[in-house]
């Protein structure tokens, strides 16, 4: 912890860590308290995952395709969380008057967004466990043993890039207000397709793969598959390269998020329109 300041108030590091934890707490606790989320965030994604597994099975596709669909289903829940739990979030918070309280607080705005992201990842991971249970338990999908550490590494890098994108979207959506809604809806399905959640990225052709690469979801899924299945995954680029691209994307998105949030805050102070005015 950074030392307290001369005036007895906490130093920057302690302040921002606590702010992150405070914001994260909402989701950690909330996920346990709102059982209806189980339907939209766990059951529905698990169902579409199951339909792909069964489809592959009916078509007599290689068994490895099934595990690929399970992984896709899990990653889909993260993408939904990035869109609705990150992208649309600041817009919600503006409506509720919460945003004004963040703008007035001394903690950095990134610490709030980080709290949101970590909370979202935690929450979604609890849902993912559900999908895994359905995939491996109910549907009897099997994979050969694989190394856990590289998978974890790819996962962490992918999440950083993905939620970094979510943070950037959050400020963009705030800027565009209600239209954000439609953008959110519009982004959900095409990204599922482009990122090859349920089929190998390669199937899209080179151009499609590049497009998918911009959304970290596609790259991340591809890299994770390669770690789990080896050559059978029919990966797009070598894992190393994919992880490197993801890392660059992560940094770029985080910088972009910070910059757009700053721009947004300055704009709001100039025009007085982003914090709610009810008095």
């Amino acid at each position: 912890m950074s030392p307290a300041r001369a005036d007895g108030r906490p130093g920057d590091l302690a302040l921002n860590l606590r702010a992150t934890w405070g914001r994260m707490y909402v989701r950690v606790v909330g996920s346990a308290r709102e059982p209806t989320w189980i339907m939209s965030d766990a059951v529905f994604p698990a169902l579409s995952m199951a339909s792909f597994v069964l489809l592959y099975r009916a078509l007599g596709a290689p068994r490895s395709f099934e595990s690929l669909a399970v992984l896709g289903g899990i990653m889909a829940t993260y993408w939904i969380n990035v869109l609705w739990g990150m992208g649309a979030q600041l817009y919600w918070e503006k409506q509720s008057g919460q945003l004004q309280l963040y703008f007035i607080a001394p903690c950095s705005r990134m610490s709030i967004l980080t709290g949101m992201a970590l909370g979202g990842i935690f929450m979604t991971t609890t849902r993912a466990i559900f999908s895994i249970a359905v995939g491996f338990g109910l549907l009897g999908v099997r994979v050969a043993p694989f190394a856990l550490a590289p998978l974890l590494l790819v996962f962490v890098v992918t999440m950083t890039a993905l939620y970094g994108l979510g943070m950037t979207l959050a400020s963009l959506f705030l800027l565009y207000g209600r239209e954000a809604w439609h953008v959110c809806n519009a982004l959900q399905e095409p990204v599922f397709f482009l990122s090859g959640l349920y089929f190998p990225l390669r199937a899209l052709g080179a151009l499609g793969a590049v497009a998918a690469g911009i959304v970290p979801l596609g790259l991340g899924v591809d890299a994770m598959r390669q770690v789990i299945l080896g050559p059978a995954a029919r990966g797009w680029l070598p894992v190393r390269v994919e992880v490197a691209i993801l890392a660059v994307l992560a940094v770029v998105f985080l910088i972009l998020a910070r910059a757009s949030l700053r721009y947004l805050e300055a704009l709001s102070k100039r025009e007085g329109r982003l914090t709610q005015r009810w008095q």
Partner: peptide, 29 residues
């Protein structure tokens, strides 16, 4: 800042937790 008529806070939190959360944005141990 206290603004009358505002409706901030997250519905799933308890009152006590919500106030604690705000204190965290100020880094209070």
């Amino acid at each position: 800042l206290i603004s009358g008529g505002e409706s901030s806070g997250y519905g799933s939190l308890m009152v006590r937790e919500c106030l604690w959360m705000y204190s965290q944005f100020y880094g209070i141990p």
